[in-house]
């Protein structure tokens, strides 16, 4: 049913799409570091060329029982469950910022374990549920 012409066009097309896809993969690979919106504490720990004067973003979970809010600053620990970074921040945080929730902090690293944030963003997770259900779940855990 397929004519010779169609077959020829199809092979041309396959070649073209493969080339574009490979091109895209190569571009993305070379840009990989720039595409990451934030670094996890583990990535900070293993990376060797950290510019301490450059603004970067780190992200992870706010560790349980580490959030301290005083008049001057907010302190908490960002964790990816393997490594941790202490974060200090002055200013207002989004409503959804809380312990055991995702967070992205923008600012400068002081050393590999301490980060001074200039801006805090809350990272939402993919769970959507009504409030009543959340309470039921909590009770079950207890």
């Amino acid at each position: 049913m397929l004519t010779k012409k169609v077959k020829k066009r199809a092979s041309l097309l396959v070649l073209f799409i493969t080339a574009t896809a490979i091109g895209a993969v190569l571009i993305l690979k070379s840009l990989n570091k720039n595409i990451l919106y934030f670094n996890s504490p583990t990535e900070i720990k293993i990376s060797e060329d950290i510019d301490f004067n450059k603004r970067i973003r780190i992200g992870g979970m706010v560790k349980k029982n580490t959030l301290e809010i005083t008049d001057q600053e907010i302190r908490f620990v960002v964790t990816d469950f393997k490594n941790e970074i202490k974060v200090s921040f002055k200013g207002t945080v989004p409503n959804l910022f809380a312990e055991e929730k995702g967070v992205v902090a923008e600012g400068k690293l002081q050393d590999k374990k301490f980060f001074i944030a200039e801006r805090i963003l809350a990272k939402h997770d993919e769970n959507y549920m009504p409030p009543e259900l959340k309470d039921i779940k909590k009770e079950n855990v207890k």
């Binding site: 895209a24 993305l28 990989n32 595409i35 990451l36 919106y37 934030f38 670094n39 996890s40 992200g59 992205v104 963003l121 990272k123 939402h124 997770d125 993919e126 769970n127 959507y128 549920m129 009504p130 259900l133």
Partner: peptide, 30 residues
């Protein structure tokens, strides 16, 4: 790339709630 961007790279955008395979993490009332 759009579809899998939230899985391949660390993004501020949350991962997909509705999955083609497996259970969705969105309550039926929503």
């Amino acid at each position: 790339i759009i579809k899998y961007s939230v899985e391949w790279w660390s993004t501020l955008h949350q991962p997909a709630s509705i999955k083609i395979t497996g259970t969705s993490s969105i309550h039926s009332s929503m």
